[in-house]
Simulated assay, not measured.
Amino acid sequence: MNLIKILTIISCFFFKVIIAQVPIYTFPIETVNYYVNGGNGIQIYVEEKGNTKKITIFIYQWDYRGTGRSDKPRDVKAYTPKLVGQDLHAVISKLMDLFRLKE
């Protein structure tokens, strides 16, 4: 019984050491950052990663108003669904313009 416990402890330690030493290779990803004017003139931070010609590995993300690198208005009225929708419209419009230019 003690032999089983010892082997279990040794095997857990062994696998942790092996797994921790496995290198994770990353490929260089081109990143482009910019701001888009959202609703009420709020600056929305946008980040593109990857190549737009290879859509399967293209990542497009943004920070909503009040989060991340986007503007953070103090007025509660600056967070209405209408203004957030205008932000989304501005980001999508910019994305559509980028794809039209790169075709």
Rank of each mutant, 00 (worst) to 15 (best):
W62E: 00
I44W: 06
Y64L: 10
I4L: 11
S70L: 01
Y64S: 07
F15W: 08
R69E: 05
Y35G: 09
A20F: 08
G38L: 09
T52A: 07
G41F: 02
I59C: 04
Y79T: 00
V32T: 15
L83Q: 10
V22H: 01
Q21N: 15
L95T: 02
I29A: 15
I42Q: 12
A90I: 05
K54C: 08
I29V: 14
I18G: 07
D97F: 06
M1V: 02
P23T: 03
D75L: 13
K5P: 01
Q43G: 06
N51L: 04
T31S: 09
Q86Y: 09
I55Q: 07
W62L: 04
G38C: 06
E30T: 15
L101M: 10
N2Q: 03
R100S: 09
I4A: 12
T31H: 01
R74A: 12
T8I: 03
V84H: 07
F14G: 07
T67D: 02
S70Y: 08
I29T: 14
P23V: 00
K5S: 03
A78N: 10
P23S: 04
A20Y: 13
N51S: 04
G50M: 00
Y64P: 10
L83P: 02
E103P: 00
Y45N: 00
V17L: 15
Y64A: 14
T56S: 10
K72I: 11
I10M: 08
G41L: 00
Y34L: 14
Q61N: 01
G85P: 04
P81E: 04
Q61R: 12
T26D: 06
T67G: 01
G68M: 03
G85A: 13
Q61S: 11
I92E: 09
A78V: 00
T8N: 13
V32E: 15
V46P: 01
Y45E: 00
I42G: 00
T8A: 11
G68P: 05
I29M: 15
F99E: 11
K54L: 12
K77G: 03
Y35H: 07
K16I: 13
N33K: 11
I29P: 05
D97M: 01
F15Q: 05
